[in-house]
Simulated assay, not measured.
Amino acid sequence: MNNHEISYKLYGDDMQFVEVELDPQETVIAEAGSLMMMEDNIQMETIFGDGSSSQGGIMGKLFSAGKRVLTGESLFMTSFTNEGQTIKHVSFAAPYPGKIIPVDLSELNGKLICQKDSFLAAAKGVSVGIEFQRKLGTGFFGGEGFIMQKLEGDGMAFVHAGGTLHKKVLISGETLRIDTGCLVAMTGDVDYNIEFVGGIKTALFGGEGLFFATLRGPGMVWIQSLPFSRLASRVFAAMPGKGGSKGEGSIAGGLFDLLGGDGK
């Protein structure tokens, strides 16, 4: 094993957090702001890039950090190392309602492709990079941009999905069409493309967007029922200042709005 071997335990249902068990001198890396709690003798350090052992000198670190910028992430990550003599624990919380997906990269041929905002934490040694899609259509119309995150290594990694999570195993040649925002992650052997919905009426009035992701097996796919972008748009639309109702959709609320909202 090139990565640190860490143990973990998941807590909660809709608002989960993951507790990582660290032996002496073991390290876990995480996105900034994901820490929930940690025990004493755990040393927290800000690192440039992802801290993977594959980096070579300053140029390797610059390249690693540059890859994170392309995916919209920070230049820096945070490492947590057990400097004590006994087992210690550190916990990381999900950023919004959903599920945390524990993934053993050694069981997935060492590679997982995921949405750019889904990575939560991983054992030290896991490389967090970028995955360029082969087709330009994927980049221009894929909803998640031309670049997705790529996790490589042979250790544990944790990604987060919104709402309910569904894992689907595709056999060779099997095809699955997914809303682009609902795609969380997939193994590296899945063929991924973007296709037009088809039909001008469906595209303009269907309410499902102009494009969807087409995945072709073999491989594994993780799908989320509530992408954060969809949740945020619903919350934004419901805000009183953006056209939402102050009366929570009730008849009284509707009359309140007709009267000017403040009764004056």
Results as ranks from 00 to 15, higher is better:
E19M: 07
G188W: 08
L226D: 02
G66M: 05
G244P: 00
N3E: 13
D14S: 08
Q133H: 07
G263H: 07
T180F: 11
T180K: 09
K135L: 12
F211P: 04
R134P: 08
A237Y: 08
F236G: 06
I101T: 02
L210V: 06
D104E: 06
G143R: 08
S172Q: 15
L35I: 07
L165D: 00
D104Y: 03
G254A: 13
T180W: 05
V20I: 15
V18N: 00
S233N: 11
F119V: 07
V159N: 11
I6D: 00
Q224N: 07
A93N: 05
Q43G: 08
A238K: 13
H89N: 13
F76P: 00
T138K: 12
D14W: 14
V90W: 01
S64K: 10
G181D: 10
R177F: 13
D40Y: 03
S74G: 09
S54F: 00
I251A: 14
Q133L: 12
A203Y: 02
V126G: 02
S172D: 14
I100E: 04
G142C: 09
T78I: 07
I47Y: 00
G219Q: 09
F236P: 02
K264R: 12
G142W: 07
Y8D: 07
R177V: 14
P95I: 06
Q224W: 01
K135I: 08
L75A: 04
G129V: 06
T46C: 06
I223G: 06
M186V: 01
N3L: 09
Y192H: 14
G137R: 10
P97S: 04
T86S: 15
V103N: 01
R177Y: 14
V169R: 08
L258G: 01
F17A: 03
I87S: 13
E39L: 12
G207D: 06
G206T: 04
L35Y: 04
S54Q: 02
M59E: 02
I100W: 07
E31I: 12
S53Y: 09
G198H: 10
I178D: 02
F141A: 11
I100Y: 04
Q43P: 03
M156N: 05
N82G: 07
K246W: 04
A185P: 00
A238E: 13
Q25H: 15
S118W: 05
S229D: 11
L176G: 07
I130P: 00
G153I: 13
S52G: 15
F211W: 14
E248G: 12
G153M: 12
F76L: 04
V184I: 12
N109D: 15
G244K: 01
K99A: 03
Q224L: 04
F80H: 05
S53Q: 05
E248P: 03
K242A: 13
G49L: 02
F119M: 11
I58V: 10
H166Y: 11
K168P: 10
D189T: 15
F140R: 15
K124A: 06
S229N: 09
T187V: 05
D13H: 13
I47N: 00
T81F: 03
G260P: 06
G181E: 09
I113H: 04
A122P: 03
V69F: 09
F212N: 06
R134S: 14
T81G: 02
H160Q: 14
K242T: 05
F92L: 12
I178V: 15
R230Y: 09
G137I: 13
